[in-house]
Computed example of a mutant assay.
Amino acid sequence: MTRELVVLGTASQAPTRDRNHNGYLLRWDDLGLLFDPGEGTQRQMLLADVRTSMISHVLITHEHGDHCLGLPGVMQRMVLEQRRDPVVLVHPEAAGPYIDRLLGVGLYDGGPDILRVAVPTDGAVLGLGDGRSLVATPLDHRVPAIGYRVQEPTTTRFVPALLERTGLSGPIVGRLQAEGRVHVDGRVVHLDDVSEQVIGQSMAFVMDTRVCDAAAELLADVDLGVVEATFRLGDEELAARYGHMTADQAGRLAAAAGVRRLVVTHFSQRYPDTAGFGLEAGRHHDDVIAAVDLDRIAVPDRVDAVAGAEA
């Protein structure tokens, strides 16, 4: 199964000669979560070999154009490619009127059903199947905006060597899993005695926000954190005024939150060179990628057990 971030665009307010408006596809096994399709996303999908059949969800953080103007084109592409499976469209409740207008821009005839989820001001938790969840949390921007976190559950698995040591095999193992403990030869074997916990992988998407507690909570201990870094050091006042972060702030935030791999993006057109964003954030975090259009960035391998090594 594939777990990667496909970067369709990295520009903030205005695209540049080298950077398309925002757009990010998270491929997560059977899921394809398209975050913030800005203008030009449909064309970027062609360049990145992304088909609409890969998209299960479209997730909008807020109504600013660089985060949603590509939505009509993506939906029209679904008609062209004869997409039939429903698509889930998630957005802040406050952005509802803007989403209505975007979906009504052109004739949408013969495309898949659109299952809309409007996230209220206090956030929401949505199911993604197989115990996975999508957490949507309000952030601190100039308009109502939300960040997202994809979270797998922590699961329990048996350790064969521990089972062998206790002499357990066959149907009694199933009983142990169902009941949590079994009696064997006059003693009690607990599930914890012969198993270990496997931490579910996680990803957070934190766009257009000032540094805030909600952003830190979304990013806490995630395997992959995609974080806006609109400005550079020296432009902190601009960042605060317009509801954004610098790369330095993004690096500090991710390091404090325990993010394993940090991707910085959403770069202002005032900076022609984006490599400096990675260097700036990298002063605080040792695994930083400054996103480039059409990059494919792997989600780091899972942590195998609660206190174990990587798989």
Score class of each variant (00 low, 15 high):
Pro112Val: 08
Thr156Gln: 06
His64Trp: 03
Arg51Ile: 04
Asp248Ile: 02
Ala275Lys: 10
Phe35Thr: 02
Ala291Cys: 14
Val198Leu: 11
Val198His: 10
Asp192Gln: 11
Tyr108Met: 12
Val117Ile: 14
Arg142Gly: 14
Val226Glu: 02
Gln13Ala: 13
Gly38Met: 13
Thr246Leu: 15
Val87Asp: 03
Glu228Val: 07
Asp113Arg: 14
Pro15Glu: 04
Ala239Val: 08
His67Met: 07
Gly23Pro: 06
Tyr242Cys: 10
Val194Phe: 04
Leu34His: 05
Thr16Trp: 08
Val87His: 00
Asp208Leu: 11
Asp109Gln: 11
Gln42Asn: 06
Glu236Leu: 10
Val117Ala: 03
Arg132Tyr: 01
Glu236Ala: 04
Gly234Asn: 00
Ala256Pro: 05
Trp28Lys: 05
Ala95Asp: 00
Ala311Cys: 13
Ile55Arg: 03
Ala311His: 10
Val206Cys: 12
Arg175Asn: 09
Pro153Ser: 10
Ile172Pro: 05
Asp223Cys: 06
Val74Asn: 02
Pro153Arg: 10
Pro97Trp: 00
Asp192Met: 11
Leu8Phe: 02
Arg3Lys: 15
Ile55Leu: 04
His21Ala: 13
Val7Asp: 03
Thr246Lys: 15
Asp295Phe: 12
Gly104Tyr: 01
Val222Gln: 06
Gly110Pro: 07
Gly186Pro: 13
Val299Trp: 01
Leu176Gly: 03
Leu8Tyr: 00
Leu26Lys: 02
Gly243Leu: 12
Glu228Tyr: 05
Gly200Ile: 06
Gly9Ser: 07
Asp30His: 11
Gly32Ser: 12
Leu224Tyr: 00
Asp100Lys: 01
Asp122Cys: 08
Arg302Leu: 10
Leu219Asn: 04
Ala161Lys: 07
Thr156Trp: 04
Thr209Trp: 10
Val189Lys: 13
Gly38Lys: 14
Glu81His: 12
Arg132Ala: 14
Ala216Met: 09
Ala239Thr: 00
Phe277Thr: 05
Gln82Cys: 13
Arg132Thr: 06
Thr121Tyr: 05
Ala309Ser: 13
Pro86Ala: 12
Val259Tyr: 02
Gly73Met: 09
Ala281Phe: 09
Pro300Asn: 04
Asp30Gln: 11
Gly234Tyr: 00
Arg51Gly: 14
Ser53Pro: 00
Ala124Cys: 05
Val74Glu: 01
Val288Ala: 12
Gly104Cys: 08
Val226Trp: 05
Val50Pro: 01
Asp273Lys: 13
Thr154Met: 08
Val125Asp: 04
Leu134Tyr: 06
Met78Leu: 05
Val125Ile: 15
Val182Trp: 02
Gly123Cys: 08
Thr137Ser: 10
Ala216Asp: 06
Ser268Pro: 09
Asp185Asn: 15
Leu279Thr: 10
Arg27Tyr: 05
Ile172Val: 13
Asp208Gly: 01
Val188His: 08
Gly131Ser: 07
Gly104Phe: 03
Thr61Phe: 02
Ala94Glu: 02
Arg241Trp: 06
Thr41Met: 10
Ala178Trp: 00
Cys68Thr: 03
Ser195Leu: 09
Val74Leu: 08
Val150Asp: 09
Gly180Leu: 11
Val7Asn: 04
Tyr108Leu: 15
Gly73Arg: 05
Met75Asp: 00
Asp18Ala: 15
Val226Cys: 09
Gly276Ala: 07
Asp235Ala: 14
Met207Ala: 14
Leu47Val: 13
Val150Arg: 01
Phe205Tyr: 15
Val150Met: 01
Arg116Ile: 06
Val159Asp: 11
Leu80Phe: 12
Pro272Thr: 08
His141Ser: 14
